[in-house]
Structures are given as C-alpha cells and as structure tokens.
C-alpha cells in the first residue's frame, strides 16, 4: 500500500487498467492463438514493471481512497492476467467458450483433446516473474461419457 502511494508516477491507474484490458481482450479473448498468447506473455511483464514505476496514486492510506483501492486491484489483475495466459497457452485444445484457433475441426468447430487435457488446471502463484506451478485435478465421469457438443 505504501509502495503504491510512494511511486508518484505519471500515468493513472485507469490508464494501466485499460491497457491491460485491451491486451487481454484482443489476445486472450474468446479466440486466441499460440502467437497471440506468447505476445501477451511478453507484454504483461512490461506493463507490470511500468505500473510499479510510473503509476500515480494520490491521497493517503489511512482513509477511504478509491484510487488506492483501484490500484490494488489492477496490481492483482496484472499477475492474474499473466497466470490466465500461461494456462491458455498450455492448454492445446479448444474447450468451452474459448477457441484456440489452431485446434478446430474441418468445419470450424471447437476441437477438444480429452486425452491430454481432461483436467481442471489449478495454478499456484509462485510470485511475480516466477513460473506458476500447475496442479491437475482430473475430470472423472462415472456415469456419463464425454462427447462433442453440437448445435447443428
């Protein structure tokens, strides 16, 4: 908290929030590719280091301070956005609402890879600029069989 207040840089919290949001929307949105994800993983640490050097959070830490509250959230979003991108990159399939453009059927439908990715990925944050640790929770179905959803 004191660190955020002491930076006294030139850019507002909203400015960083918007930049990160646009990057995530464009590159880690519903449609994503290996290239767009790798580019994001290069860009987020750059935005993050600029954030911690150049953000401007006014006011004090002891009273109600909406700017400080927002700054704390955006600091979290920077770490979380990166973690989310690691997960998206590692999951080489199209699953749920997320479409990895490299993995699609001949007629453009989402193509899952149940052999490799039939698990929930629970990532463990290991600190900024450290690769997070992946914990896998396997998806085990006893009664039903996994199949391809079709709206056709």
């Amino acid at each position: 908290m004191n660190k955020l207040l002491s930076i006294k840089g030139k850019r507002t919290v909203t400015d960083f929030h918007r930049e990160l949001g646009k990057l995530m929307w464009d590159n880690v949105g519903m449609g994503r590719t290996e290239a767009s994800l790798k580019q994001t993983l290069e860009r987020i640490p750059e935005i993050r280091s600029e954030f911690w050097e150049n953000v401007n959070v006014l006011g004090e830490g002891n009273d109600l301070n909406p700017a400080l509250e927002h700054a704390g959230r955006v600091a979290d979003f920077l770490d979380f956005g990166e973690l989310l991108t690691y997960d998206a990159l590692m999951r080489e399939e199209s699953c749920g609402g997320h479409f990895r453009e490299e993995y699609q059927t001949e007629d453009g439908e989402a193509l899952r890879n149940d052999e490799k990715f039939s698990h929930v990925s629970a990532w463990e944050f290991k600190g900024t600029d450290q690769y997070p640790e992946l914990n896998k929770e396997p998806l085990v179905y006893e009664e039903i069989k996994m199949s391809q959803r079709s709206y056709k």
């Binding site: 507002t12 909203t14 401007n56 006014l58 006011g59 109600l64 301070n65 909406p66 700017a67």
Partner: peptide, 17 residues
C-alpha cells in the same frame, strides 16, 4: 465524474470519492 476524476489525477489533485 469518472472522466473528471481522470483529469483531476493528471493535474495532481485527488479524485472525487
């Protein structure tokens, strides 16, 4: 008010809560 607050921060004034 959000837009005004952005202007205020850029001028070095605390935003309106």
């Amino acid at each position: 008010l959000d837009v005004l607050n952005e202007d205020l921060i850029k001028r070095g004034e605390e935003q309106i809560a």
